[in-house]
Amino acid sequence: MRTLIVAEHDHQHLKSGTLSTLTAAMALKSPIDLIVIGQHCHSVVQEARSLAGVQCVIVADHEVYQSLLAENLAKLLASFAQDYTHILCPASTFGKDLLPRLAGLLECSLASDIIEIIDQDTFIRPIYAGNALATVRLKENTRLLTVRSSAFAKYTLQAETLVELRACDRVYAAEKTSLIRREESQNDRPELANAKVVVSGGRGLQNKENFALIEALADKLGAAVGASRAAVDAGFVPNDYQVGQTGKVVAPNLYIGIGISGAIQHLAGMKDSRVIVAINKDPEAPIFQIADYGLVGDLFKIIPELLSKL
């Protein structure tokens, strides 16, 4: 029994989903290795080496891995598969792109977006936008799993440990796919996926200018900004702000949804938050059915009042 975690990073730092995936991997109770694939990712490797739960950090550092494409990353991972009983990756867009491709190469099954580990073969995953939970069993030699980060605590980095390092010189080039560019949406707020407080706005904000109210409130609270699909589609905010079944799943300490009706696809992305606040002028809005604190009223009056009293 041995577990491999595929680290997600941006060549500078480990993404926090990797730390949640490590917590999940600990539940498998077998030795854990972690692989960092990329180019010039020394700082990522340093962070990875401070993860006390990991036995060995494998580093595949080569220019062919610069673009982090599923096409060749999956081939590299496939070359490691026989050494591992489990291969885990965060269920981010990175992991969702990569691990099923690996499953295809190995012709084996994969359990995606798991939220609980029952035993080495048995996992729980949400289906139907989280309105049902499926318990699935994988009977594979190598069990492939993507892990929902919000369902597992983040493993904390421990600066004083120095995990063993192993270089990997296997080179697989992507022959048919190339990265033209990335357009990263920049902001200085906490990362949506692991923020302690999230303030989200919906169609009720009416336009991009008004959405600044949500951002102001988020800044007052040190929160990340989220949005409903309607708000993203209307162009108020970039796509990576979307919370829900087809966007990001978040579970902060405090989620404040404003001008969001609470469609099941939106609830799928936030209903496991610890405390939920809903602000909506429609007393019948479904979001009130899951909110701990509901305030009925006009957001254009309520947000300014909140801003002045916080």
Binding site: A132, A134, V136, E140, I276, A291, Y293, G294
Partner: peptide
């Protein structure tokens, strides 16, 4: 080699309370 053993309903989140003002909410 994948099998669904069972499907269950998630824990229902119990509805909370309505507050009447920003002051009460805070």
């Amino acid at each position: 080699n994948i099998e669904t053993l069972s499907v269950s309903a998630p824990k229902e989140r119990k509805a909370g309370i309505r507050v009447d003002s920003v002051d009460e909410l805070l």
